[in-house]
Write a protein that binds this DNA or RNA. Structure first.
Length: 727
RNA sequence: GCUGCCGUAGCUCAGUGGUAGAGCGCGUCCUUGGUAAGGACGAGGUCGUGGGUUCAAGUCCCACCGGCAGCUCCA
C-alpha cells in the first residue's frame, strides 16, 4: 500500500496499484480530468502507471502536471508526434519510423518513406490525426526484454528501430513500448492518458534530415508540427510565428536600406549601408564611452596574423575547417602545406612523393636534402623547418592572440593589473555555406571584444563589473528580459586544460557572483570552453524569442600557452588570468537581432533618420530649412521631404519609413514661429514652438527612451531545450 | 558541407518552347495641399553565369555561382 506525499507535504495512503490519476481523483474529479502527467522523484512520468512501480521512496513524492504546466505540454506534444506517425502509417505504405521527439515549440517525427510528402498532403494527414484523436484511445505502456524487443520491431519491419536497439540502446536490458490502437512504438515516454487530450494541433513544415543526424546515413523526411491544450494558445503561437516572419531582418534590412549582401563581395560578408552603419556607429560610440568610464583602454590590431601565432594559441590547425585558408608568401607554401597534411594522414606513396618534390622544385624549392627514406614525422619536421622561414598568414579568426601580444609587449607588475584591452575587432570565420543567415551568421564579423588580464584575486570583482556592464548596455536598448547560462566543465572529462583546483575556483566564483547578482541563471555541464567556464546571456526580444548574445569567459589556458606573467608583491613572477567578454557578441548579430526586436522601428536615439520635415507646399521649403538647421544644431539626424506631393502622401511615406518624428510646417506654423509635430506612434501632437519640440526630443533621445516595443505575453517561444523522449 | 526548393526591372512578383509584363519605386511636367497614397507622361531588363538540346530557350537538360528551408556546425 503506497504512501503518497504531495508537494504541500501532506501524505496519504492509497491501495496497491493506484496511479497518479487515482490520486488526482481522490482530490477532485475535475483535477483528474486536467491531469496529464506526473512527477515522481523529480522525473516526469505517466499518470496512468501504478505509483509503486515508479519509485522506491516511502512516502512517494508526487506532483501532478495539469494542462497549465509546461512539463505537461511536452508530454502532450510527444503524444501528438505518435498520433501523427500513426496517421502517416495509415496513409502511406512501408513507413519506416526513426525518432519523434518534442522541440521548444512543438514536435517532429522522422520517417523513412519512399513517397515524398509535401505541404499539400498536410490536410489529409491532419484529417487522419483528427480521426485518431476523436477515438480517444489510451496510450498503453509495456516492457520487453532486449530479445523480445528486437523480435517485435523486426516483425513490424522497423529496421531503424532494430538498429537503434542493437547499437544506441545496447546497455538497456529492458525496453519500453507504447501502444495506441494498431500503432506500436519503441518509446521511453511518458504519454498523455489518451489521445482525446489533444485539443489543438497543426502540421507546420516538412524538411529533410538524416538518421541520427549524420549526413552519411539514410536520408529521412522530417514532419514538424505543434500541439496545445487549447485552440487559443495555438492561435497565439501561430500569430507569433507570423509576427516573427514580418520582422525578418533580411527583409527589413533591405526595405529600409540598413545592409546588403553582394554576390561579388562574397557569401556571408555583410555590407553596412549608411542607415545600418549609423545604428552600428551609435552603438559603438555608446559602448566606447561606457568602457572609458570603466577603466578599459582602446587598442587596434590588424586583420591578419602569422600562422605560428594561432599554432601557439591552439586554434590552428584545430579549427582549420572553419577558417579561411592560410595566405602563403611563397608559391610552394600551399603545396608544402598540402603535402604535410598527406604525410600526417599517412595517405602517400613514392610516386606521389616524387611528383610533389618535382613540383616543388619547379616553383623554386629544390628540397635537396629531403629525408626521402626517413619516417613521415621526420619529413614533416623537415617541411616545418622550411615553413618557419616563410610567410604564412591567417585572416584572424579571433582577437585574443593579438591582445595577448599587447599584454606581453611590456613587463607587467601586479600594480598594473587589471589590464583591460578593448577593441571592435573584426574576425573572419569560414562558416559552412548552409549556416549563413543575413547578419545573424556571417563570415566576417566585428566583436565588441575586450580581454581583461588580472590576478586570480581580481577575477571575482572583474566578473562582477562585466556583468554590470552587460546589464547596463542591454537595458539601454530596452532589453530587460534575459537569463544567464553558466557553462561548466563535464566532471571527469579530460578535454579541458588547467588544474581541477583552478576550475573549481573559477566555477565557484562565477556561480557565487551570479547568485549575488540576482540574475536568473541555469547551469549547463559539459558546455564550457576547453580553456574555462563561461556565462552566456540569453536575451528575450519583444516577441518572446530568445537569443544568445553576450558572453563572458574565464581563461586559464592562453596565459599558460603564451607564458604570460606579472611580478607580484613578493617579487616573483605569477600567471595572470584572462577574461574574454563581449556584451553584444558581434555587431552584425546584435544589430540583426535589434532589427527584429524593434521591427526596424528604432528608438529615437538609435534611429538613422530621427526627424523628417514636411512642408505643406513648396513655398515652405526655406522655412523647412530654417527648422532643419535648428534640429541639426541640437544634434538630430533630419531630412526634408522635397516631393511635390501633398502632406498626406509625405506623412504616409515617413510612417512607412518608420521615422520617429515628423515636423509639418505650413504658413500657420511659420506665422507663429513654430511647427506641428507628429509622433509615429501617437499621431498629430499639434502646434508647438520649435524650441519646445527640440527640448522634448532632446529629453527623449538623451534618456534613451524606448517607446515602441510591443512586449509579448507569449512566453517560451523558441525557448526550451529539446527533449529526447525516444530514448 | 548534405538534401530539397528557388534565381525575370531598384523592390515584390506574373510569364512552361515562337520578338519580355504588372504594381510599387524612380525621372519630368501639371498640381500647392493641414496629418497614412492628387494627376499625366516617361526611362528602366543581353530573364544569375557558362555550356547543351531545338528551326526557335526566360521557359527543357547539365555544370557552376548565389539565395531560402531543414540537417550538421558555431573557438
Amino acid at each position: 500500500m503506497p504512501t503518497i506525499q504531495l508537494p504541500d507535504g501532506t501524505t496519504k495512503d492509497f491501495p496497491a496499484g493506484s496511479t497518479a490519476l487515482d490520486v488526482a481523483n481522490s482530490i477532485s474529479e475535475r483535477l483528474m480530468q486536467q491531469t496529464i502527467a506526473a512527477e515522481v522523484d523529480g522525473k516526469t512520468v505517466d499518470s496512468m502507471r501504478p505509483l509503486e512501480e515508479l519509485s522506491e521512496s516511502d512516502p512517494i513524492p508526487l506532483r501532478l502536471f495539469t494542462t497549465r504546466d509546461d512539463e505537461a505540454l511536452g508530454v502532450l506534444r510527444h503524444s501528438c508526434a505518435h498520433v501523427m506517425a500513426r496517421a502517416v502509417m495509415r496513409l502511406y505504405d512501408g513507413v519506416g519510423l526513426a525518432f519523434g521527439p518534442t522541440t521548444g515549440n512543438g514536435f517532429y517525427y522522422d520517417f523513412d518513406l519512399a513517397t515524398p510528402i509535401s505541404e499539400e498532403d498536410f490536410p489529409k494527414i491532419e484529417a487522419e490525426m483528427q480521426a485518431i484523436i476523436k477515438e480517444a484511445e489510451p496510450f498503453e505502456r509495456f516492457n520487453l526484454s532486449r530479445d523480445e524487443a528486437v523480435k517485435l520491431v523486426d516483425d513490424l519491419d522497423q529496421e531503424l528501430k532494430t538498429e537503434h536497439i542493437q547499437t544506441g540502446l545496447a546497455e538497456h536490458d529492458s525496453l519500453s513500448f507504447y501502444r495506441q490502437g494498431e500503432f506500436v512504438d519503441l518509446c521511453r515516454g511518458p504519454h498523455i492518458p489518451h489521445a482525446g487530450k489533444i485539443k489543438a494541433f497543426k502540421l507546420l513544415s516538412i524538411a529533410g534530415s538524416y538518421w541520427k543526424g549524420d549526413a552519411n546515413n539514410k536520408h529521412l523526411q522530417r514532419l514538424y508540427g505543434t500541439a496545445f491544450f487549447d485552440k487559443k494558445q495555438m492561435k497565439a503561437y501561430l500569430e507569433q510565428v507570423e509576427e516573427a516572419k514580418r520582422r525578418d531582418h533580411r527583409v527589413l534590412g533591405k526595405q529600409h536600406g540598413l545592409f546588403t549582401l553582394s554576390n561579388d563581395v562574397g557569401s556571408g560578408l555583410c555590407l553596412w549601408l549608411p542607415k545600418g552603419a549609423t545604428v552600428r556607429a551609435l552603438l559603438e560610440d555608446f559602448i566606447k564611452q561606457e568602457l572609458l568610464k570603466r577603466g578599459y583602454e582602446p587598442v587596434y590590431s590588424p586583420h591578419v596574423g602569422r600562422v605560428e601565432l594561432y599554432e601557439t594559441s591552439g586554434h590552428f590547425p584545430y579549427y582549420r575547417e572553419s577558417q579561411f585558408p592560410p595566405l602563403f608568401g611563397h608559391p610552394a607554401g600551399q603545396l608544402v602545406d598540402y603535402w604535410k597534411t598527406q604525410l600526417g594522414e599517412g595517405t602517400i606513396n613514392d610516386d606521389a612523393e616524387s611528383d610533389f618534390l618535382a613540383a616543388a622544385k619547379d616553383i623554386g624549392c629544390p628540397f635537396d636534402d629531403y629525408p626521402f627514406a626517413k619516417p613521415a614525422d621526420e619529413k614533416i619536421a623537415y617541411l616545418k623547418a622550411w615553413e618557419k622561414h616563410q610567410e604564412r598568414y591567417l585572416l584572424k579568426p579571433m582577437n585574443c592572440p593579438h591582445h595577448v601580444q599587447m599584454y606581453k609587449a611590456i613587463p607587467r607588475s601586479y600594480r598594473d593589473l587589471p589590464v583591460r584591452l578593448a577593441e571592435f575587432g573584426t574576425v573572419y570565420r569560414h562558416e559552412q555555406s548552409g549556416e549563413l543567415n543575413g547578419m545573424l551568421r556571417v563570415r566576417g564579423l566585428t566583436q565588441d571584444d575586450a580581454h581583461l588580464f588580472c590576478t586570480p584575486d581580481q577575477v571575482e570583482q572583474e566578473f562582477k563589473d562585466t556583468l554590470d556592464l552587460v546589464k547596463f548596455v542591454l537595458a539601454s536598448v530596452g532589453l530587460e528580459d534575459y537569463r544567464v547560462q553558466l557553462s561548466l566543465r563535464e566532471p571527469g572529462s579530460d578535454k579541458y586544460t588547467g588544474s581541477d583546483e583552478l576550475w573549481d575556483q573559477a566555477e565557484s566564483t562565477l556561480r557565487r557572483v551570479l547568485t549575488e547578482s540576482g540574475l536568473p541563471f541555469s547551469t549547463a555541464e559539459g558546455e564550457a570552453a576547453f580553456y574555462g567556464p563561461k556565462a552566456d546571456f540569453m536575451v528575450s526580444d519583444a516577441i518572446g524569442r530568445e537569443w544568445q548574445l553576450g558572453t563572458v569567459q574565464l581563461d586559464y589556458n592562453l596565459p599558460e600557452r603564451f607564458d604570460l606573467e606579472y611580478v607580484g608583491d613578493d617579487n616573483t613572477t605569477h600567471r595572470p588570468v584572462m577574461i574574454h567578454r563581449a556584451p553584444f557578441g558581434s555587431m552584425e548579430r546584435f544589430v540583426g537581432m535589434l532589427i527584429e526586436h524593434f521591427a526596424a522601428a528604432f528608438p529615437l536615439w538609435l534611429a538613422p533618420e530621427q526627424v523628417r520635415i514636411l512642408g505643406l507646399n513648396d513655398d515652405m521649403l526655406p522655412y523647412c530649412e530654417e527648422i532643419q538647421k535648428e534640429f541639426r544644431t541640437a544634434g538630430f539626424r533630419t531630412t526634408i521631404d522635397h516631393q511635390s506631393a501633398n502632406v498626406k502622401k509625405k506623412i504616409r511615406d515617413a510612417q512607412l519609413d518608420l521615422i520617429p518624428y515628423m515636423v509639418v510646417a505650413g504658413p500657420k506654423d511659420k506665422d507663429q514661429n513654430g511647427l506641428s509635430l507628429r509622433d509615429r506612434l501617437e499621431g498629430d501632437l499639434g502646434f508647438m514652438p520649435t524650441a519646445d519640440a527640440i527640448a522634448k526630443l532632446v529629453e527623449e533621445r538623451d534618456t534613451r527612451q524606448i517607446r515602441q516595443v510591443i512586449q509579448s505575453d507569449f512566453k517560451g517561444f523558441q525557448g526550451g531545450d529539446e527533449e529526447a523522449n525516444s530514448y
